[in-house]
């Protein structure tokens, strides 16, 4: 019995020790620094100020609150778009799932998910150049829309970020919902057909209820990613114009690495961490539920 215990420990302990050293240290150190007035260029002069960093970024300055607002605005808009478009796309690919090529088309569609965020940013920086980019050329030539600063005026910049974000992640929602549609038993469709139900009825009464847990799962997983949204903004709008696309992770980045105010930066990181943990807790509950529903499928 004793041997078994050791054997079991060997399965689990190495990972826990590894994470304790590598992952917990940054976490504790960030929390610790968030209570100090600290600048990276003069760490020996840091001094304890308690909650003041949190007070400053949350209540005395308008940038971080705007960043929180922007983060959730971008998150909710992109996720809404992703669900609607993702559902439509999933339906289309579901209907043609037995057709040749449909598999190839689907594979090409989901490629953006896996691409390097840095490269995605650069691709759109190239395309969205208002004077020389292909996007403004197409708008101008085929639709007669004069170029404007797609990344440089408040509303267009926000829309651009949401669009790029959705472009990269709608395919995720699509394959997720496609997996959901696959779980709908064929008999239900046939029963509906016999009853003469129209497509709207099929959608609202059969499909949506059975993919609801998939949608929820998609929402929380995407929310976790959106809270950490950084690379696209870093490359394209740099948080601008003004602070129209300033988001939490970008604020943390520039506080820590442009101003080197690592105390304030850590405070904002801890806030992101707390928000992420709340969302993750919800996610985990959902994950366990979806898994249970799926049973041993």
């Amino acid at each position: 019995m004793k041997n078994e215990k050791i054997e079991k420990l060997l399965f689990i302990l190495p990972t826990c020790l590894f994470l304790l050293v590598i992952s917990i240290f940054p976490f504790l150190y960030s929390v610790y620094l968030s209570l100090f007035q600290a600048k990276l260029t003069k760490m020996h002069k840091k001094f304890f100020i308690g909650w003041e960093n949190y007070q400053i970024i949350l209540f005395e300055d308008d940038v971080f609150p705007t960043a929180i607002k922007n983060t959730f605005m971008i998150a909710f808009s992109s996720i809404t778009i992703e669900i609607i478009l993702g559902f439509i796309m999933a339906k289309i690919f579901f209907e043609i799932r037995h057709v040749k090529f449909s598999n190839a088309l689907r594979t090409v569609t989901i490629m953006p998910i896996m691409l390097t965020p840095l490269c995605v940013g650069l691709v759109f920086l190239y395309i969205l150049n208002p004077t020389l980019g292909i996007f403004s050329y197409i708008l101008d030539t085929f639709f007669g829309i004069e170029p404007f600063a797609y990344l440089g005026e408040p509303l267009p910049a926000q829309i651009s970020i949401i669009a790029i974000n959705s472009w990269q992640w709608t395919p995720f929602m699509m394959i997720l919902l496609l997996a959901g549609l696959m779980t709908v038993p064929n008999e239900q469709y046939e029963a509906a057909k016999i009853d003469g139900a129209n497509w709207f009825h099929v959608m609202t009464k059969i499909e949506i209820p059975s993919i609801l847990s998939f949608v929820l799962l998609g929402v929380v997983l995407r929310l976790i990613e959106c809270i950490r949204l950084f690379d696209i903004i870093y490359i394209t709008t740099k948080g601008g114009p003004g602070i129209a696309t300033e988001v939490m992770a970008f604020f943390t980045y520039r506080t820590e690495f442009r101003s080197f105010q690592i105390g304030t930066g850590s405070a904002s990181a801890v806030i992101i961490l707390i928000i992420s943990l709340i969302v993750t807790t919800i996610a985990v509950t959902l994950l366990r539920r979806v898994e249970k529903n799926e049973g041993l499928s």
């Binding site: 208002p130 170029p147 910049a157």
Partner: peptide, 12 residues
């Protein structure tokens, strides 16, 4: 200036 100049930085 060219339309869209609001997003210009060095390279643009």
């Amino acid at each position: 200036m060219p339309p869209g100049v609001e997003q210009y930085a060095w390279d643009e």
